[in-house]
Nucleic acid binder design. Structure first.
Lengths: 332, 332
DNA sequence: AGTTGACTCGGAAACGTTTCCGTGATTATT
DNA sequence: AATAATCACGGAAACGTTTCCGAGTCAACT
């Protein structure tokens, strides 16, 4: 039994007889033989792995943030498993620059495709990946556009609907919590909120826009600024899932109760309905988002494009409002 | 300039002259050449990557859980980067069996070493890895002991100190929230709490031990059981970081306020001091835990053992109490 | 009965490294 | 000055797989 026959049998090629295929598979199982991945990929040029790049470290451990990724990743993997592709999370340490890290890991050639997240407004990773001609999809839009596929949460709708809902409840002084300007979603959120307010003849005051980290401390900081404001906002929209704890705490320490004294609209997460008051927030199906991301990536890989004839996926991911108690306060 | 010379120069071997080393490095940078990882590892038998196995999916997205991992991973990577090793998170989808997954990824031979987490009381992964002779370290002990290195949070101290503190505040009816029996920490926690209570002449009633999922819903379920108890506990110890939200909510819905009507001791996490009341809980330095894990792994790899002469690391990770408001209630 | 085609399979090349071995040149030693 | 030792480098083998090519067997068709 020659080496080439074994290879053909294990890969279930048509030019290996049914009988030998079975014999080889049985022998392999018995001897505990598994093909060497290095030899395989050296020859074929394919690694059989897809990378999902994300950052680790203290600043990226907000409740919503990690919950978000764990569920998206779960969905991505569901798709990849269908094609015997493995998903690995490429963890960029907090101490390392994201662009350098990506460069390093890509040139190492350990992944056949990539998903990047936390896209920035101008994101050098995108141009780099395009240059490398490695298939990738971005979770989040960017102004850096090389025709890459992306899927992004529909922040326009979230911002617009949040504002509309609050205005309908009589609010006129509406504040917005935004991430750092670099992050693309911050810009989109900001822009959409401003436009929605304008549609009601309202203006987004600059002292009502709070740039803050998407974590507990960030939320607490927002509360401080609300307290200190001369003309306090009567409602606030949070663009992330993680800062609500800190916001609640900070407000309550000054006797301001969300839902009673101020309206809060945020983003849904597992804790949303266990907060007091429960959070009114926008929900997305994260597992399905992961599935869509995986399929978008495969669609951009020549080997799989015929199975997923989706073209270049550029999709806003739908969102739905989960009504809780936090926006119960109406300003008339 | 021959292929072998280039190889030697790029790897900074002593048998390449200083001049050629510099020339080669410059040329490589200019041409954008990077060594092919497949060829490299095919020849050397080493991959240059370390895997950290963890599960994804809805049931593993509790606040504390993911925060825990993100910080530990950050520490691990800090160590690995010193030796140009890459850390990849091996994500086992919620739909896949953890043992099968590990078998698959290990036999693929894509990692030189492994860190496993969520060790179970009897954990087939440990015996499998020992069989494969692949270096690994376990985050958490197990009764499956093949002499592997491990690091584990000091749950004995957490359980014992929690009980002691509550007893000192006059509590006699103390409840404990525990994970599923399979998980080793559950057993340790249970055992230690029982012993600590016994030392004070108290008994851990079986209807005060709540097996629950380490997430918000689990905490809410515990609240239900506390409410329904004929003889309500006056204090509860949570073994995880994630269920506190649900517990608070569930209790407050029935007018029972943590810190005022019942004492709660839990585990520290970023949200602990932003809860109302702030949580009294045990804290660990997670980044440093990750560093220790990384060093323990390297110590068990022949190539690095001389740099980290630690032997087989088996270490309980220290913990410290962060005092908040949640255990303010005293039962006299 | 001879030719053709389909079907299996073995041999060998190739993927890109690392490393052993050998060789020539230079320097140090006797 | 002759020998020995060191240094720098080129050639070639090897890692384990996939795939091209050729060859053999057997059945079917003219």
């Amino acid at each position: 039994m020659s080496i080439s026959t074994v290879s053909r049998a294990l890969n279930d090629r048509p030019d290996a007889s049914e009988a030998t295929r079975k014999r080889v598979h049985e022998a392999a199982a018995k001897l505990g033989y598994v093909p060497n991945q290095s030899g395989r990929s050296l020859r074929s040029g394919k690694m059989g792995t897809i990378g999902f790049m994300m950052k680790t470290g203290p600043e990226f451990t907000g409740q919503g943030h990690t919950h978000f990724f764990m569920n998206v990743l779960d969905g991505v993997q569901e798709v990849l498993l269908r094609h015997k592709l493995d998903l690995v999370a490429l963890l960029c340490a907090s101490t390392e620059n994201a662009d350098d890290y990506l460069r390093r890991v890509v040139s190492r050639g350990v992944v056949d495709g990539l998903i990047i997240s936390n896209t920035r407004r101008v994101d050098p990773r995108i141009s780099f990946l395009a240059e490398c001609k490695i298939p990738f999809v971005a979770l989040g839009r960017s102004t850096t556009d090389v025709g890459q596929p992306w899927i992004d949460i529909d922040f326009e709708t979230i911002a617009t609907e949040s504002v509309n809902r609050l205005v309908a409840k009589g609010h006129k002084r509406i504040a917005i919590a935004l991430p750092h300007d670099d992050i693309n979603l911050g810009h989109v959120f900001h822009h959409s909120a401003r436009r929605a307010l304008a549609a009601h003849g309202l203006k987004l005051e600059s002292n009502y826009t709070y740039k803050s980290l998407p974590n507990e401390a960030g939320g607490y900081g927002i509360a401080q600024r609300i307290i200190e404001a001369g003309d306090r906002p009567t409602a606030i929209v949070l663009s992330n899932e993680s800062s609500v704890n800190g916001l609640y705490r900070g407000l309550m320490e000054h006797g301001i109760f969300p839902g009673r004294d101020i309206a809060v609209i945020g983003r849904d997460s597992p804790q949303a309905k266990y907060l007091s008051p429960t959070l009114t927030g926008f929900h997305q199906s994260l597992h399905d988002l992961g599935v869509a991301l995986g399929e978008a990536l495969l669609a951009s890989m020549p080997q799989y494009a015929s199975i997923y004839p989706l073209g270049v996926v550029r999709k806003l991911w739908p969102t739905a409002l989960m009504v809780g108690e936090s926006d119960g306060f109406t300003a008339r």
